[in-house]
Computed example of a mutant assay.
Amino acid sequence: MITQHTDVTTYLDDKRRLVEQALETYLPPADTLPPTLHEAMRYSTFAGGKRLRPVMLLMTAELFERDCRDMAFAAAALEIVHTYSLIHDDLPAMDNDDLRRGRPTNHKVYGEAMAILAGDALLTLAFQIMTDPTHLAHFDPVAIIHATRELALAAGSTGMAGGQALDMQAEQRQISVEELETIHRYKTGKMIAAAMRMGAFLAEARPEDLYAVTRYGELVGLAFQIVDDILDLEGSAETLGKNPASDLQRQKATYPSLHGVAQSKKYVEQLIKDAIQALHVFGERAYYLMQLADYMRSRTY
């Protein structure tokens, strides 16, 4: 039972450093042949960012009283898949963004062809990491299979890739609230829920506990995307690290466009409340995950 807590910011920073170390371990050096490809892979992977998904995976490890350092490989794989998706989403054929995390997007630096290859290579690297036999020293092979499958499902046609497809098809047309929520759950929510589920599978959590963390991840994931929609209207390029109002320019449906900013913020509050409630079964062990959910509603980037 946890009886004393460090500052939440310090706690999250410690987890981010562990993620950074794992990424450095698994990303090939920039001078590895072919060097331009590896430079492009590292350029986007080490461009900064919140590292939300891998941090949540490490937090789940600690929720189930496992050493989060043992799960750093899975956290790195998850972040690498997320990075691949950002590179491809920014391409002219998709969102056509010039700025990401305060820097020119990958295709602006390395060209479209190399950006596509960097994304492809990152996606492949993630599953190379997940299936490295050395992990068998700490985890049951069935647990690794479950966690690896979870990552694949969250990234695929019924997850993130499917969400991007639905999002592109919804541009410049009226869609329902239900359609918008499906886009958000696929495009953002499933990868965030996967962070929790991967950690739970590797920790060999009970089915009822897996359900609780999945519920939390789904609710936090939806809240995260709605806040993103709000920040796209209210934020600046300096704080967001990308061009604001991009959704508006592409005539994309968002929660603020359908409900208004005030109602969208109210919905976020309810989602966060429900997410925290889902963790009550864990008691004090869920303290930091509850604090993370609370952070979602007040973040500025």
Rank of each mutant, 00 (worst) to 15 (best):
V55L: 14
L18S: 14
G49V: 03
G48L: 03
T32Y: 04
E24P: 02
D31K: 15
R42H: 07
Y43M: 07
L37G: 04
H38M: 07
Y26T: 00
L37N: 08
R42M: 09
R53W: 03
V55G: 04
P29I: 03
Q21C: 04
T25K: 11
T36S: 15
T45L: 12
E20N: 14
P28K: 09
V19E: 01
L52S: 05
P34Q: 09
F46H: 09
L27K: 09
R53P: 03
A30N: 08
A47L: 09
M41D: 07
L18W: 00
T32N: 12
P35C: 04
L52H: 06
Y26S: 02
M41N: 05
K50F: 06
Y43N: 03
H38R: 12
D31L: 05
T45K: 04
P28R: 02
A47Y: 02
L27D: 09
M41V: 12
T45R: 00
T45W: 01
E39F: 01
K50H: 06
L18I: 15
V55S: 12
L27E: 12
G48D: 01
D31Q: 15
T25W: 08
V55I: 15
F46W: 12
P54V: 10
T32W: 01
L27S: 07
P54T: 11
L33S: 11
T45H: 00
A22Q: 05
Q21S: 11
L27T: 07
L23H: 04
H38I: 08
M41I: 06
M41E: 05
V19N: 10
E24T: 03
P35V: 00
A22D: 02
L52I: 14
A47W: 06
L37P: 05
T25H: 11
T36F: 13
L33G: 07
V55C: 09
R51K: 14
E39M: 11
P35I: 03
P29E: 14
P54E: 08
M41P: 10
Q21P: 00
L18A: 15
H38V: 10
L23F: 00
L52P: 08
L52V: 14
A30S: 14
A22C: 00
P34L: 01
A30W: 03
P34R: 14
L27P: 13
L33K: 07
P35N: 08
R51C: 06
L27Y: 08
K50I: 03
L23A: 06
P34V: 03
A40R: 10
F46S: 11
L52T: 08
G48E: 03
V55T: 13
A30M: 07
V55M: 15
L52N: 05
E39S: 11
T25G: 00
D31N: 15
A40N: 10
A47R: 05
A40C: 12
T36R: 13
E20V: 00
T25F: 03
A40F: 07
H38Y: 14
Y26R: 07
A40Y: 08
V19Y: 00
A22F: 00
T32Q: 12
D31P: 13
M41C: 06
E20S: 13
T45C: 12
